[in-house]
């Protein structure tokens, strides 16, 4: 009992000793709290609820005529849509956030990301050119820009260019605390090397991506990394590397396990198909 009284007294004395802080208006505070809650959920991978909270925050900021807060949450929501695989919805939101040609670099990068997900390569390239012009000298978003340029190049069949751009991104990310982007750059390097026929290099890069994604506990990316590792081993089967088929099957099985456990139906189908191909002795053509 004494301890409780003592604690209460300390709290009151402490509060009395401090200068009263300027308090945010309740509506602004509620909007900021919704945004903060959404950001926490996004980091935890709870994208569905995060999206709801960002949408709430966006409405609340719009309701108090805070266009900066509203746009910021619109961008957060678009990012969440992209994480949920709803590229069209993201694009729609981003269209309202800027005019697309001269908008904020974050918006341009997200637009290009959505367009790449929708396989609209030429439009994505145009947006990336605009983004490059907006990113003066060494803007903080430069590594992300390089990764997206590498994605566009790889999607267009320019494997060497993709590999070079992803390599630049890895160098730029070297001293930064941006693990998800570093893993993305490694995954892209693996895919580019694989497209160029370098199975050994691809295997090392995919393994580097997997190590980071495992640390970040991102199931979808981990499953994709295992698929890439499986593909690299399958390419090694062409050079008759002993045990490559077994290694490929083991990697695809890991991808399948992760996909099943995380409820990723699309990746599970890919892994099953790949396992069947390995079982049937199918080797990718040179």
């Amino acid at each position: 009992m004494r301890a409780e009284w003592l604690l209460v007294s300390v709290i009151f004395l402490g509060a009395c000793g401090t200068t009263p802080k300027p308090v945010d208006p309740p509506r602004l505070k509620a909007a900021l709290e919704a945004e903060s809650d959404g950001a926490k959920r996004y980091q935890r991978g709870d994208y569905v609820v995060a999206g709801r909270r960002f949408a709430d925050a966006m409405r609340q900021f719009a309701g108090i005529d805070d266009s900066i807060g509203s746009t910021r949450n619109r961008i957060h929501l678009a990012r969440t849509h992209l994480a949920l695989g709803r590229a069209e919805a993201a694009l729609e939101l981003l269209g309202a956030a800027s005019d697309g040609a001269t908008g904020d670099i974050d918006v341009l990068l997200l637009r290009s990301q959505a367009l790449l997900a929708l396989m609209r390569r030429s439009e994505a390239e145009k947006v990336l050119v605009a983004a490059e012009q907006s990113c003066a000298a060494k803007c903080p978003q430069l590594p992300s820009l390089k990764i997206l340029q590498a994605r566009a190049a790889l999607a267009d069949g320019r494997a060497a260019e993709a590999q070079a751009l992803a390599g630049t991104a890895i160098k730029l990310l070297g001293d930064k605390d941006q693990a998800p982007e570093t893993a993305n750059a490694w995954r892209l390097t693996a895919a580019a090397r694989l497209a160029a026929g370098d199975a050994t290099g691809a295997l090392a890069s995919a393994q580097a991506a997997l190590d980071i994604d495992r640390r970040l506990a991102l199931p979808e990316k981990i499953a994709h990394d295992w698929l890439l590792i499986g593909n690299a081993h399958r390419y090694a089967m062409r050079d008759q590397v002993p045990g490559a088929a077994g290694e490929a099957a083991a990697a695809y099985s890991r991808a399948l396990d992760v996909a099943h456990a995380a409820g990723l139906a699309e990746i599970a189908t890919l892994a099953k198909q790949a396992l069947q191909d390995v079982g049937a002795g199918k080797i990718p053509a040179k």
């Binding site: 990012r79 994605r151 998800p180 892209l188 990316k221």
Partner: peptide, 10 residues
């Protein structure tokens, strides 16, 4: 920043 949240690049 995460330019590939779904790991689609690979």
């Amino acid at each position: 920043p995460d330019s590939d949240p779904r790991g689609e690049a690979g």
